[in-house]
Design a protein around this nucleic acid. Structure first.
Lengths: 326, 326
DNA sequence: CTGTTAGCGCGTTCAG
DNA sequence: CTGAACGCGCTAACAG
């Protein structure tokens, strides 16, 4: 069989190419007979329109570019799944990239998105690095999970999440508090402010600093071990971790040292991934479906409207799921 | 700024559009001065060539379509990561689809791949459903993790993996054997044959049948509970599960019933995902990097050669990673 | 070394 | 209702 183009279909159905086009793009006034013939030929030979040509012609690719920082955290996997589902429902495909926390790769990915004429982008950025350039692009984009001001964004209210955890611990009678994370973020701010507001303070020595982002259980574990080894004794009775993997790794390390969870230390994680469910870790729940639906909705709106209204920052309400670890 | 096409760049650099094209596609004999000017303009305005046009012109999209059955199993996530990395290294982007074990969605995805002119496809198929049609396509495709005969495939030698586990159990002194999975597969065949060859038999009552594929821990757990409740007592002292999630869920259910692992029952899982590492589950290791590299390599070869040689079936050597569960 | 030209496959006028 | 003709942005001959 030759190349299988509209022209070919046209020939086989004994009509002109433009008629075939009309049939495919919603039958706007085509003789029923002709239409039926065309459809039949298409069916028979298994013709599928060339999207590259369509994209070129319409300057619309029906692709959404997605660039995440990692997939190691199961949270992002659930995100991808939901994203793909929601996008497909709206007739879009997902072009997936993983920057691995590298701003250079991130920018390359975005260049690729531009080259492929994506209609919109959804990003979990590596940081501030590329935000300015991105905001200057003609392609609408929305940030997930973070807050990057010139851009639209949707995510949990991290400050509030931190507060909820802080207050929870305080209500539980704790007086010394730990935190584990990479770089200080809104979760941490919220956590700390809850403590201060209740007359407690956060001691910097109780901050378990993790080097890189959670790219690897092993590295994370090393950092935890280093911390535990350096501390003569743990000076906190409760710990809030920036994600579930961290909570998990801490709990494993604790177990080996005969530290009881939650007896000696209460642990609350973040993301409420299935790791938390499997391991019975209390965690701040991320309403993934809601996040994804909202994100796509905003993006779709931006793609339709030429109007460049104010940037939208959506912060969803966090909630704590309590399990055995706290 | 207007549309930012080659024409535009040409105008700004005071050359013809085809010269710009030459500069972009590897400088084949262009005046250095002109080239420099062009490059500079490109840099200044941030021009990126339109891939839709390139695709149309060259009938080559530099996209590899990937369609998996699920991302719930962390194994597939690691696969995606490796795939994306390896593809990017070779100048390809990944278009990712998730059939969710649904052959209809799978076929739709493939139609989409065709429409987008993907240069090749990598599939974890939903089953035999679409294999015939796929093999008739002009687009080269290779199957991962499974064996679908008319198509190229690369994966572990599942029969051998099953044998290794069976023999391991036998060496460990076990006399009664369990298996957990969805549909009987090569792992199970290998497992059974190892038993028979050593004078044991596999009793059908020791097959823990799971309904759907492992789309959901919760459903899986229900099936396990149903099985455990129906069996007066467990008639096996060792269990081989088709993936790590299954092993994990079994171990959790066992724990609640005070069944000791590995004391009462030895458990060996499959995939050697980080779940296995985290939970200390013995598991058959999947050399993901090797699988992915081999897959891409085969695909790349197919894409270059017009030669339609025999279909290639690569079966990698499985190995057992022993941990605390066996 | 460089500009002109002709499509790639499709959607969309514009005539009939 | 329908065909002819044009052009989306780019690559690849083809002349100069």
């Amino acid at each position: 069989m030759s190349k299988l183009t509209m022209k070919e279909i046209a020939k086989l159905a004994n009509v002109s190419q433009s008629t075939v086009s009309r049939v495919i793009n919603g039958n706007n006034g085509v003789n029923e007979d002709a239409a039926k013939r065309v459809l039949q030929v298409i069916e028979e030979v298994g013709y599928v329109p060339n999207k590259a040509a369509q994209t070129l012609k319409k300057s619309q690719s029906k692709i959404i570019g997605v660039c995440l920082t990692e997939t190691y955290n199961p949270y992002f996997v659930e995100l991808i799944d939901a994203l793909e589902f929601e996008a497909r429902k709206n007739g879009y495909s997902i072009l997936l990239h993983n920057s691995k926390h590298n701003p250079i790769i991130e920018w390359e990915s975005i260049q690729n998105f531009i080259a492929r004429q994506v209609d919109g982008m959804i990003l979990v950025p590596t940081g501030e690095y590329n935000i300015q350039r991105i905001s200057k692009l003609a392609i609408p984009s929305v940030v997930m999970t973070q807050n990057r001001k010139p851009l639209d964004s949707v995510g949990l209210d991290h400050v509030k999440a931190g507060k909820i955890v802080g207050e929870k611990f305080i209500h539980g009678g704790h007086k010394t508090f730990g935190f584990m994370g990479t770089i200080p973020d809104d979760k941490f701010l919220g956590y700390k402010s809850a403590l201060y507001e209740n007359g407690f303070e956060f001691k910097q020595e109780n901050y378990i600093q993790l080097q890189e982002t959670s790219t690897n259980n092993f590295l994370m574990r090393q950092d935890i071990e280093t911390y535990l080894n350096s501390a003569a004794s743990l000076n906190f009775t409760c710990l809030f971790t920036a994600n579930d993997i961290m909570a998990l790794e801490f709990m494993k390390a604790a177990k080996e040292r005969n530290i009881e969870i939650p007896g000696d230390i209460s642990v609350i994680g973040f993301d409420d991934t299935y790791l938390a469910k499997i391991m019975g870790i209390s965690s701040i729940h991320q309403p993934i479906e809601e996040i994804v639906k909202t994100t796509i909705e905003i993006l779709l709106n931006r793609m339709e409207d030429e109007v460049s209204a104010e940037s939208i920052q959506i912060k969803l309400e966090p909630s704590l799921i309590e399990r055995g670890s706290s």
